[in-house]
Design a binder for these strands. Structure first.
Length: 437
RNA sequence: GGAGAGAUGGCCGAGUGGUCGAAGGCGCUCCCCUGCUAAGGGAGUAUGGGGUUUAUAGCCUCAUCGAGGGUUCGAAUCCCUCUCUCUCCGCCA
């Protein structure tokens, strides 16, 4: 959520920033509402102040046993007038609030200006793109060829965009998550976290999935979930552990000395991907359910950009240890996600697609989520201040598995297991049809 | 699922209609005193918003006692709904 103070004092600046990410803020309506708001809020508060003083007079008069009918007559109409004023004010406030909830974050000054993904900026590349002396297969052919990947079974159980892994492939999937967790907890200083996979409305508002992106979520309709009391009964499957981890500090005032907080969790993620029909229909790339190891930093505002670099580095380390080629790009203003002020995407090389594909997205949300969540800390002078929140994948487990299958494939259809994962595989060094179980 | 109890400031805890944003204690901050330590004395110590302002200073003001609604001139206190916590029973991994 944007800072309404900023919009009041420097609206043009904010609007220009928002334009750069293809969002047009309803300036005229905002100004109109603000004028109204100011007028009505002052009026409301005057009425309240009057009511308060008169009520106190009545109180003291009664305690002295004096007659109060005259004073009571004086405030006879006050109640109705106040009620009306409050309801007007609430209407305006709620429209303003909605306007704020729907506006995306302002891009950081260092973010390249651009319209869409074609304007993203590659900032570094790591690893050599492999060449194969045989005709390569994509991960689906590899997995199905080894009888370790079964989309038909998943479709029978659940429908399209689900997958079933078996045997050594399922184990490799587990090994990947374990490896990532171990790296982040033992080498990178994160606190391992087990979180709920079902979260409430407030949490999703906090990180910015609601109110705008409800269609991307899977909602759980609990018993008695009437539309009007959705706030108390509606739960959603998390689309990312960013929601669970970041909301840890919702409505909290954390102590300065406990910063930074760094959390990591391995969770499934659920996305309805409503807008993506026809994209990546084949394979594991775009699923309704996938696993991800998520990294979240809760930091002092002064430290957030250093934390972003650190976070990206942590995700890169995983790919380096796995010896998978990748590149890091800075998303341009037009391609960034709703809550982000700056985002680096890490893209891994997928030989069968002959291109890099996103495997991690690391964002600094600055105070955007913190403001929605009222997540604060007590600063050096004791004043409560909004925190900065960051999140990034470290990494998407399913897509990492895809990258391994494709980059480590052999001519005979088997797949070599990256060195670093072998301890997690009971020493197994390749996936093959024979060793499938 | 059944029965009961509860939710107040950083923590504990008082407060069942009137000057209560809230006694008291603990903790914390500052000051004084004490040659260290211990003890003692004094002051301060919630959050969010609005107005004014060059100001995140000051001043004025509003709201908030789990959440939302209601009664009332006035609600922490009375009524309704919900959420959460605890105890007992049942069920269950």
């Amino acid at each position: 959520m944007l800072d309404i103070q900023l919009l009041r004092t420097d609206l043009n600046y904010a609007v220009e920033k928002l334009n750069s990410r293809n969002y047009s803020f309803p300036v005229d309506r905002f100004n109109q509402l603000e004028t109204e708001r100011k007028k009505i809020q002052i009026h409301t508060q005057e009425l309240q102040a009057k009511r308060n003083t008169v009520s106190k007079q009545i109180g003291s008069a009664k305690s002295k046993g004096e007659d109060t009918t005259a004073i009571l007559a004086e405030v006879a109409n006050l109640g109705d007038e106040l009620k009306q004023s409050i309801s007007q004010l609430e209407q305006i406030q709620s429209e303003l609030h909605k306007m704020l909830l729907e506006a995306p974050n302002l891009p950081h000054d260092s973010v390249p200006k651009g319209k869409d993904e074609s304007d993203n900026l590659e900032i570094r590349c790591w690893g050599a793109i492999p060449s194969f002396g045989f005709e390569i297969k994509d991960h689906v052919s590899i997995g199905e060829g080894l009888k370790l990947l079964d989309f038909e079974a998943a479709a029978k159980l659940s429908g399209s965009r689900f997958s079933m892994m078996k045997g050594s492939l399922a184990r490799l999937h587990r090994a990947l998550a374990q490896f990532m967790l171990d790296m982040h907890t033992q080498e990178h200083g994160y606190t391992e976290t087990y979180t709920p996979y079902l979260v409430n409305h407030d949490s999703l508002y906090g990180t910015g999935q609601l109110p705008k992106f409800e269609e991307d979520l899977f909602a759980i309709k609990t018993e008695g979930d009437a539309a009007d009391d959705a706030h108390t009964t509606g739960l959603y499957l998390i689309p990312t552990a960013e929601v669970s981890l970041t909301n840890i500090v919702r409505d909290e005032i954390v102590a300065l000395h406990s910063l930074p907080l760094k959390f990591v969790a391995h969770t499934p993620c659920f996305r309805s991907e409503a807008g993506s029909y026809g994209r990546d229909t084949r394979g594991l790339i775009r699923q309704h359910q996938f696993d991800k190891v998520e990294l979240v930093h809760i930091v002092h505002p002064k430290a957030s950009y250093a934390a972003l670099d650190e976070l990206v580095g942590h995700a890169e380390t995983i790919l380096q240890k796995l010896e998978l080629p990748y590149r890091v790009i800075t998303l341009c203003t037009g391609d960034m996600g709703f809550s982000a002020a700056k985002t680096y995407d890490i893209e891994v090389w997928l030989p069968a697609q002959n291109t890099y594909r996103e495997i991690s997205s690391c964002s600094n949300c600055e105070s955007f989520q913190a403001r929605r969540m009222q997540a604060r800390f007590r600063n050096e002078s004791g004043k409560t201040t909004l925190l900065h929140t960051l999140n990034g994948s470290g990494l998407a487990v399913g897509r990492t598995l895809v990258a391994i299958l494709e980059n480590y494939q052999n001519a005979d259809g088997s797949v070599t297991i990256p060195e670093i994962l072998r301890p997690y595989m009971n020493g197994l060094d390749q996936l093959s049809a024979a060793g499938g179980q």
